[in-house]
Amino acid sequence: MHRTYPKALYVVRLNVENTSIISSHLTWGFPAPSAFTGFMHHLQRQLNQIAEYATVECCGVGIISHQFNPQITKTNQFRYSPYQLNLARHPLKADGSTPAMIEEGKGHFEVSLVIGLAGDELDEYLSANDEDLSTQTQSLLNQLNLLVYNMRLAGGSVFPHKHVKPKLINWSEHDAVNKTKALRRSVLPGFALLHRHDVLTAHQKWLAQYPTYLETQKNSPDLLDTLLDIQRFNFFSTPKEVIVDQEQLEGVWTVRPRPEHLKGWLVPIPIGYGALTDLQPQGVIKGLRHDDYPATFVETLISLGEWQSPHRIENIVDILWNYNTEPKNGVYELVQPFASQLDIDTSLTDEETHQSFEFETEEEEF
């Protein structure tokens, strides 16, 4: 897969209001990474229209959330969800009738974006000292600010942060770790969004050898089974006998402990789209917004993400999201091209294998 390492990082903190919080057909909450890669792509296209920045490339966007406020109400009316979206009432029509209400979730959030910049002619616009910017560097920073503050992010209105000013940092691979240590202090407190497909596949392997899962499900787990298993409380009955009200019971229902590889703030996230049909030539599919390109019908791809504190990140470019420029089998996904894959131990412990649990008092634990 093609990957262009950034020569500069543009770091900006934004307050975004009335953004869309319905990120896919199965998830709601913080906007999908595709909203931020689309923001980055639009920024590059506007920047390239300026002659001196015509070759500048945005090679990834990092997402660090500081605050998220969904516009919801807690309610007991619904069986499957304790929350209800706050819906806006639209003005009446000319004849006095009520217009149709379209359910759309809204929210406000504060986020830091780390946008990687690359390009052969970018060097002349960068300063060697990040604190003492040259005239060319300051001009580029001002141009980026002008474009960003006039854009929308995930459908929401963008406002600059009152106290944290944007930065333009000269970046190279050899001093990335040292500069990350200085940079991550400015993005705390917050949480960076990482793609953890490696944890998803590791847990699938772990489930495939877990005795209780195989006994109850009668089959090996696929990735959807694995994702659902991670996002819920899993109960099982232990073989230990207990006596309650002079009645002997043969098992105790308890929550299955989470294995070591599932430690962390793990969430389901949309990471792109999967094609439902073959790619159709230009003009074959009618009613598209733009008929200038080939098109196909798609559905959302759901994977596993992790919100991780920036102080645990050694190289800030590991969090950059970008498009997979070489899609295969109709999979148009978002990736983190600079992130390193870790080895995850999925071997079962003796306790997990034998399902032996100790209780202090049988009646109280039941």
Results as ranks from 00 to 15, higher is better:
Phe338Arg: 02
Gly251Asn: 14
Lys7Asp: 04
Thr254His: 09
Ser309Met: 09
Leu87Ser: 05
Phe359Pro: 09
Gln336Met: 04
Ile271Ser: 02
Asp95Gln: 10
Phe36His: 09
Ala202Val: 02
Tyr213Thr: 00
Leu223Arg: 05
His90Met: 14
Asn48Phe: 04
Tyr83Gly: 06
Glu362Ser: 15
Ala339Trp: 01
Ala192Leu: 10
Asp198Thr: 11
Ala54Thr: 04
Ser134Gly: 12
Ile271His: 00
Val114Met: 02
Asn170Glu: 07
Leu279Cys: 10
Ser112Lys: 04
Gln77His: 13
Leu141Val: 08
Val267Ala: 05
Asn322Met: 07
Phe366Gln: 10
His203Pro: 03
Leu224Ile: 09
His25Leu: 02
Leu147Arg: 04
Asp278Arg: 15
Thr216Lys: 15
Met1Ile: 06
Glu260Lys: 10
Gly283Leu: 06
Pro160Ala: 13
Ile319Ser: 02
Gly62Leu: 02
Tyr210Ala: 05
Gly251Tyr: 13
Glu260Gln: 10
Phe78Ala: 10
Gln209Ala: 07
Glu215Ser: 14
Asn48Lys: 14
Val12His: 01
Pro270Cys: 02
Glu131Ala: 01
Pro99Ile: 06
Gln138Pro: 05
His195Arg: 02
Leu126Ala: 13
Gln248Asp: 13
Asp278Ala: 15
Asp222Thr: 06
Gly119Val: 03
Gln280Phe: 04
His311Trp: 15
Ser97Asp: 03
Val335Ala: 03
Asp278Asn: 15
His2Tyr: 12
Ile269Arg: 00
Gln84Trp: 07
Asn86His: 07
Ser23Gly: 00
Asn48Pro: 04
Ile64Pro: 03
Ala192Asn: 07
Leu348Ala: 11
Val267Cys: 08
Leu146Tyr: 14
Lys162Ala: 11
Phe30Lys: 03
Tyr332His: 11
Gly251Ala: 15
Arg89Glu: 14
Thr212Met: 11
Lys218Leu: 15
Tyr332Asn: 06
Glu363Trp: 09
Gln231Gly: 07
Glu314Pro: 01
Asn129Gly: 10
Gln217Phe: 14
Trp206Asp: 09
Gln217Gly: 08
Gln84Leu: 11
Ala339Met: 09
Thr216His: 14
Ala182Thr: 04
